[in-house]
Design a protein around this nucleic acid. Structure first.
Lengths: 338, 338
DNA sequence: CTGAAAGCGCTTACAG
DNA sequence: CTGAAAGCGCTTACAG
């Protein structure tokens, strides 16, 4: 490995000062066009690598944006991340990703690391139980935070997420419209804003239709395919014999349908199932899944844009921005025929 | 936001020098134990944030490790990443993740950014068509590279991946053992080492069993669930009426099974299907998927360990390390009954 | 056991 | 249009 090429190496080789080299490489109009070209050419020949740490130490801008969510392997977050990535790519920002797996400690470590690296901002879907201080730590050290998918009650931070209560009411109403009355609610937890909102949306829709809400028809917990699959056993042995299930998300719904099929019933036909999120996978499941499009691409795009705007010094309104969900009717729901 | 706390702030407040503070915070035995404690306590009270950029500018070690793969939303890579993450977490390294989507340019941008940030090393699953120079760029600038899942012919880099030819032969032999003769091969591409090896493993197994290899039974391309789903149409209209399919990976297999089911046939019973990778999802698919465990957790763990060892100055052997795959027999394959 | 001083590689007023 | 010099916040020999 040849010795390190730095600004001064280029400067000396060209008989110029480092100031001029620095300006030229960043395309400053302060340097004459042909000098600029000559410098860039030389930088290329020498294999110069820009040292961002040095630059950022001086400017206190790093070009790094942190993103931390529950689990990047969950396609719901995956789709949000993809949208963030493509938005950030465009503005030449580097993004650092992490899972917190709902561990407050892991999340705090991430925020601290990000601060140490001089991160410009952070987009996060806060872990269950995140104390306000952990987010304020970022803000107080000049690293603005944007929330996605989950809100935090106390703080007035820019937040982008779907309108969960409304979305779930769409799915529930769809089933009621098909004649179902015994409708279970499978998955999720009361520990997140999302969880509370979705269950509430289901409860409201039932009430509005004059259907009594039976707490035993709620199976809390499942949030993954595996979870939905395992919940099928409990679901099928419920005394109330529900004819339909509103699921926490597409993963739970697909898992549940697999579990129902394993038990010898035909999901969609024997039991109507709705999902939530409209993942890519929903349309190719068997049967294809009736679900609610949750706008994760929109969420990611808007959150990234909001952060970039804030960093650029443009003012953006704080508070919660709700994305309107939309119903996607497919084969996993059928009219009740009894 | 209060003014920035730095080493010198702590030093002044305590009447000590920055050198002592620096050493104390890194637990150096050069500083007396109670001085050390006093300093740490003060750092905590003041809300000191360690500036890694400054430190790394001085030490030329950043604690950053880059990881770039085809697509983190693909659970195959997801499982590798998870293993890398847990290994890196333990040693307090930060990892920066990126997809290259098989774009050589995106991959090169990533490597350059990583160099600019002073990355200590990079773990990569090289994009199709990666030129040697792009990887050498990293190596020559003191940033060692480790390959996962895919190899590169010309370079003698440490590489961790499954033994693809052997693994696919296990799946093919399993089907042959069940009496199948007309066995299709669905998905993948000849443009990656993995693709060539897997197809070759299939060809070898057929030949060894005295079965003629029919190139028309190969459907190239699909690598995702969506791809497998769409391939079902072509698969079912093949003139040779195959009774079984060896799929490129679990995603293609699951997609294909969904497509087969959509066409009114029963996957597993009417058509035997094997996957590859043994994703978490394989065991809960309907029918549960017969597949080959590809050791992605092992791959990620070993690759991370190898890099950390190298960074610690321990010598590690270059060259390709093949992880032995294992057969997982489930419900998606049945004896031929005609 | 602690301190003074140089230096990592940039950028930014400021001067000319 | 270009250059000299200070400084970002650390760490590391070196000296005492």
């Amino acid at each position: 490995m040849a010795q390190k090429i730095k600004l001064s190496t280029i400067a000396e080789s060209l008989g110029l000062s480092t100031a001029t080299i620095s300006l030229a490489l960043r395309d400053s109009p302060l340097v004459a066009v042909d000098t600029r070209e000559r410098i860039k050419e030389q930088a290329r020949t020498l294999g110069y690598i820009y040292n961002r740490r040095a630059a950022s130490l001086r400017t206190s801008r790093s070009g790094i944006i942190g993103v931390v969510v529950h689990d990047i392997m969950n396609p719901f977050y995956g789709e949000i991340l993809k949208a963030i990535e493509s938005e950030l790519d465009r503005s030449r920002h580097t993004f650092i990703l992490s899972n917190h797996y709902d561990s407050v400690e892991k999340q705090r470590n991430f925020i601290e690391t990000l601060l140490q690296l001089g991160g410009d901002g952070v987009i996060m879907s806060p872990a269950i139980g995140t104390p306000d201080e952990d987010v304020m730590l970022a803000e107080q050290n000049g690293m603005p935070a944007i929330l996605v998918a989950r809100s935090m009650e106390g703080l007035d931070l820019p937040t982008y997420r779907g309108d969960d209560a409304y979305g779930i009411s769409l799915a529930t109403n769809h089933l009621i419209g098909l004649g179902h009355r015994a409708i279970a609610f499978i998955g999720g937890t009361d520990q997140t804003s999302t969880g509370r909102d979705r269950y509430q949306g289901y409860v409201n829709a039932l009430r509005k239709a004059g259907i009594e809400v039976d707490p035993d028809l709620r199976i809390q917990g499942p949030r993954t395919k595996q979870g939905g699959f395992e919940a099928a056993v409990n679901f099928l042995s419920l005394a109330q014999k529900p004819t339909a299930a509103v699921c926490w998300n597409d993963l739970v719904a697909i898992g549940l349908m697999n579990g129902i099929a394993r038990a010898g019933l035909v999901p969609g036909h024997d039991i109507s199932v709705t999902g939530y999120d409209d993942l890519e996978e929903a349309s190719i499941a068997t049967p294809s899944l009736t679900t609610v499009a949750n706008g994760q691409t929109e969420v990611g795009r808007l959150a990234a844009r909001a952060l970039l705007d804030k960093l650029a010094g443009n003012h953006d309104p704080d508070g919660i921005h709700l994305i309107k969900p939309e119903m996607r009717i497919r084969q996993s729901t059928e009219p009740l025929n009894r």
